[in-house]
Simulated assay, not measured.
Amino acid sequence: MEEPYGEVFLINKPLEWTSFDVVKKVRNALKIKKVGHAGTLDPLATGLLIVCAGKMTKQIDSFMGQEKEYTGTFELGSTTESFDLEQEVVPVADPSHLTESDVEKAISHFRGDILQIPPMHSAIKVGGKRVYEAARKGKVVQMEPRPVQVSVFELVKFENPTVHFRIVCSKGTYIRSLARDLGEALNVGAYMSSLCRTRIGGYKLSEAKELEPLIEEIKNRRNENL
């Protein structure tokens, strides 16, 4: 690549890939070291991942600070240690009595400026160490509530026990924590069963490319420049 090279890629992250897996794939295709992503998506999440290369890596923080939009599903009546499907599902309480009105009323408490406790299975550092490392060893780390903004928390559809949602939120918001908190508010437990990031600021998932075709495009372009 000619210097100073810089490019921003909008990628639809595949299911079960880590965000770093995607970065590594792009880095290997570009044959340059300076490649990074602007906001982690968990392996079981899909959707928009912004990957910056070359001089555009300087823009990562500005991308990360923009609001995010997600769609997905929560399952009521059970929970997991990580509040998603990475850990074993444990039944909590029968949610069959709940109505759409009950769920909507509970959701209303999690709109606007709220304090949120991040999940133990997250990359946040406490005392200089990633809390997920302690969680994997069975240790409990005291997590302090953090201010986040949830500008939209829409109940798209309720098919008991499945809650279909759309959420627009600030940087640092954990959708898994919203699942946990909603389950606790309804006294039945909940976990996140699917998640797709549909927007980061003004960048939309509809503009993103699938990973494998993009990698082929990068390789072909590089070969043409040799």
Rank of each mutant, 00 (worst) to 15 (best):
K25T: 11
K209Q: 15
T40S: 14
F158N: 02
N220H: 09
A29E: 07
E216K: 14
E159S: 12
H37E: 09
L76D: 01
G54N: 02
L48H: 02
F153H: 04
D102E: 06
N223W: 09
V150P: 03
I175F: 03
A106C: 14
E86Y: 03
K219N: 10
A185Y: 10
M56G: 00
L76A: 07
A29W: 03
K137T: 05
T40V: 11
L48Y: 04
A185E: 11
V92G: 05
P119A: 00
P161F: 05
G65Q: 14
L186Q: 06
F165L: 06
I124N: 09
L41Q: 04
E133P: 02
I175W: 00
L155P: 00
N12W: 02
E81G: 14
Q149V: 06
I167Y: 01
E88R: 12
M143V: 08
L76G: 04
G72Q: 11
P118W: 09
S170F: 12
M192V: 09
L48M: 07
S82Q: 07
V140Y: 09
N187I: 09
K68E: 04
N187D: 12
S194G: 12
T80Q: 08
I114V: 05
C196W: 10
A93D: 06
K125N: 08
R136P: 08
E159Y: 10
R222I: 15
S122H: 02
I215M: 10
K105Y: 06
Y70E: 08
S170G: 05
V152W: 00
Q142E: 14
R130A: 02
L214K: 07
F9E: 00
L182E: 01
P43L: 10
G36Y: 06
F63S: 01
E207A: 13
L211W: 03
E104V: 13
L48T: 00
S78N: 14
A45R: 01
V152K: 09
E184L: 14
G202N: 13
F165H: 01
P161T: 10
L44H: 10
G128F: 07
E75T: 14
P14T: 01
V126A: 02
W17D: 04
R197E: 10
Q149F: 03
I215W: 11
G127C: 07
T40Q: 12
G65H: 13
Y174I: 08
K24I: 06
E100M: 13
D42Q: 12
R197N: 05
S62E: 13
T173R: 11
V51L: 04
A38F: 04
P161Q: 13
C52M: 08
E154S: 11
M64W: 03
K55T: 15
A135W: 05
I11T: 00
T99A: 10
E207P: 11
S108I: 06
V188N: 08
Y191C: 14
Q87D: 09
L182K: 08
V188F: 02
T173F: 13
G6V: 04
M143L: 15
D21P: 00
V26A: 03
